[in-house]
């Protein structure tokens, strides 16, 4: 049994596998298959200050080796998260990451304040949602806006702060450096890539929102590249995600520089994916006589 523990910004995870925000709700839907305590952590569904309905359905479209979603951050608001979801998660022996999104800087600051005296272990500030009209990705596509919002939230919380980056930018390393200088303790990437599908018979986009975020195996090589670039340009931990569906993908992304891995869309194809990835990773490390999973982080040997 290899040592799978990782430490991100002072928070210890028993293993590096975390269901990604939006793909796993608050974990309740999977408790009948396996205990949540098997997982390293959970990144909860993105939460805004007051809750919102999101976009009209259809909100999902299949793509070659992937999917588009246009949920648009449907959630019941931060107070609901604190009162109704957190008490359940507290009992699960798992690192709880609150995923925070806001339409304004002030919203995000207020959410961080309300989380301050809760049992949440970590805040993941989502500045990269492609599915909301105001805020969301707008914060994540300019260095200045990314820096500003990170600074403001940094001041409002003593919890470890991870900022989730958008791949829909010219230079993700510049954004990563900007949030690092503004006080982020870690970065997570990638959020979804903006995409579109059209029904050739009706000439209508499949998604009612016309466009949506691409995720799943289709985005994996893009995600590996971005994790590698970012890991090489900042000194804070990088949590990698985007298309991971097997332990091999997870090992590959950690070699590229990720200190932990989040898994989203692959869970829809197989709800046991996170558990299989943990088991497979453990076996891989044992077979290769690697004692600690941390020994593979960033160990790609570039040409």
């Amino acid at each position: 049994m290899a040592d799978l523990r990782v430490n991100i910004a002072g928070v210890e995870f028993k293993n590096p596998i975390i269901p990604a925000s939006g793909a796993y709700g608050f974990g309740r839907e999977y408790e009948c298959l396996y205990p949540l305590s098997k997982l390293g952590g959970i990144s909860c569904k993105g939460t805004t200050l007051n809750g919102q309905n999101g976009n009209p359905a259809p909100r999902v479209a299949e793509t070659p080796s992937g999917m588009l979603n246009s949920v648009g951050l449907q959630n019941a608001g931060i107070d609901h998260f604190i009162e109704k979801e957190l008490p359940y998660l507290e009992k699960q022996d798992i690192v709880v990451i609150a995923n925070v999104a806001g339409h304004t800087v002030e919203d995000c600051v207020e959410i961080a304040r309300r989380l301050e005296n809760t049992s949440t272990h970590m805040i993941e500030l989502n500045i990269s949602c492609p599915n909301v009209k105001q805020g969301g990705a707008a914060f994540g596509t300019s260095c200045q806006a990314a820096e500003e919002i990170t600074k403001a939230v940094r001041k409002a919380t003593t919890k470890p702060l991870m900022v989730k980056l958008s791949p829909n930018v010219t230079s993700i390393t510049d954004i990563a450096k900007a949030v690092e200088s503004a006080g982020a303790d870690a970065v997570s990437l990638i959020n979804t890539l903006l995409g579109m599908r059209i029904d050739i018979n009706t000439r209508r986009p499949i998604l009612k929102n016309n466009v949506g975020g691409l995720s799943g195996p289709a985005v994996f090589p893009v995600a590996v590249r971005m994790v590698w670039q970012v890991a090489n340009s900042v000194n804070i931990p990088v949590v990698g995600m985007g298309g991971v569906s097997t332990y091999k993908d997870a090992v590959e992304m950690m070699l590229a520089g990720a200190s932990a891995i989040q898994i989203g869309a692959a869970i829809f194809a197989d709800p046991f994916t996170p558990v299989k990835v943990i088991d497979g990773m453990n076996e891989f490390l044992d077979n290769n006589n690697i004692e600690k999973v941390t020994d593979i982080i960033g160990k790609v040997q570039p040409w």
Partner: peptide, 12 residues
């Protein structure tokens, strides 16, 4: 149209 089928992803 569905993703997870169990209430976790909110697409449906």
């Amino acid at each position: 149209r569905m993703g997870c089928g169990v209430g976790a992803c909110l697409v449906c």
